[in-house]
Nucleic acid binder design. Sequence first.
RNA 1: GGUCCCAUCGUCUAGCCCGGUCUAGGACACGAGCUUUUCAAGCUCGGUACGCGGGUUCGAAUCCCGCUGGGACCA
Length: 525
Amino acid sequence: MIPHLTQPQKIFIPPPILPGKIRVRIAPSPTGALHLGTARSALFNYLFAKKYQGVFILRIEDTDVERSDPKFEKDIVEGLQWLGLGWDEGVRIGGEYAPYRQSERIYIYTKYLDRLLKEEKAYWCFCTPNELAKERLKQKKAGLAIRYSRKCAVLSSAEIKKHRSEGKSSILRLRIPDKETTFYDLIRGPITFHTNLLGDIAIAKNISTPLYNFAAVIDDYEMAITHILRGEDHIANTPKQIAIAEALEIQSPQFGHFPLILGKDRTKLSKRHGAASVQDLRNLGYLPEAVINFLALLGWNPKDNREIFSLDELIEAFSLEGIQHGGAIWGQEKLDWFNTQFMRHSEKRWLNDRKSLPNELIEYMTSLVKKAVVKEDPTFIRKRCSDIVYLVLERLPLSNLEKDFMSEFGFFFGLPQIKSELLFWKNMNVADIRQALKDIFIILEKIPAEEWEIKIIRKMIFHHAEKTNDRGRILWPLRIALSGQQKSPGPHEIASILGKEETLTRIKKAITVLKENGKNEKPMR
RNA sequence: GGUCCCAUCGUCUAGCCCGGUCUAGGACACGAGCUUUUCAAGCUCGGUACGCGGGUUCGAAUCCCGCUGGGACCA
């Protein structure tokens, strides 16, 4: 074996993660609603922080005055709160390293810029955008990397003085030494690049206006960030940030880049793909738990076959190794599935304590109605009617309910008009129906009011109905008696919501109607 | 154009580091059937994937090389 031909070490062993020492952040720009990519970024950072008892920070990068808007900051803040991803330090709550809004930190950057200038690691560049553009074009044609020519790097102090006195516009550039550097990506392993491809990057517009990469490095340093976990669209920024840190002689945090969320066309998910913000999903009626669960499994997996996770379970199971390398397409079907899973949970939770219907559930139901109306698809509501059953009617703002909803579920609100002929099941006659209703009346009457809950009602009804060969003989007349409609939630579901008294009243009423109309042998269906 | 990243069912993914147990597993979606009090749900069954080409090897989804494809960034 020839020693110097040994393969380079391929396996990268990441430095140990020290519990309690971790500080991570997300740093969104308030230039739009909370994007799903940002939300997932927040999730992963949150999980990582919680897993290792670290600190999760929310910093707002609002230096782009033109496009930043406080209303978007509000949206980001509210979106994260809605998702349940609370931050330990940051905007709105402050912390040891405040302020957390970049626009309020401007005074901090100047001293670093000054230092770089004094140490001659940075220099003023007076090239006009026009000159730069020409330069770029030339490089492009020649098939070269696009980078600055370093024309101004050699300017004498006299020349600089002259340019400045003439009021020539300028920017600040960093001298980047030529070398090969490797950084160890926590998710992908070693990534190597050549700094000479970067050119002397621009770091500030002037002594008090840093550019993105510079401000980010300073902020992360000042805030003692230990790990930067972000989307892979930032991989290309990493060498620049490392170069800046090296010039400043400060230590870079560890980096990890996870894949992007893609649209159907496999490009970065954006507004033109439809719902791309957390707010959109919220408006569409998704539960935050479902969104979290879906986001988590998009690009990460627990290495086993589990699918349903609570936030706490996610923290428990999370690890950087489970993060995918390739981008993942945003497919809403699975989100829908998660949503129904969590709907059930909510229902169950609620069933145990009827008084505490989760607000999200009400929101969900209301939005469902709205959505159905928008889609002009009344059957949409019907499809979800067993979910809707669980509404606590008095808590629903009636004024918000759409007409379609009322026609489908109006019977909850008042005694339904019962058409006698609807009561008939197959070839049953008046006497049969009457008997069936009387029987079920007696059964239900026996349930004590305090035990009037869906599980018990269901059990009683079905137990009785099973005695006949055809459950429909009992269930069908009961359905009609309670709802007056052929298409409705299950009788036990309706009964549980109506309450004992109302349920019995309706059965009695149906018997009356049956008498009056007395039509015989009217088969249905 | 340059640089970097990525590549298993339609989609999200397991497996790859430590080659055989992979006729490639799970989930969503889809199809069929069952059950059924409508819708929904449930249950059962089913189809569909290792991008291509070389190599290494008795043996490759798994290791190596090349190609192709996709993406991100740079303006």
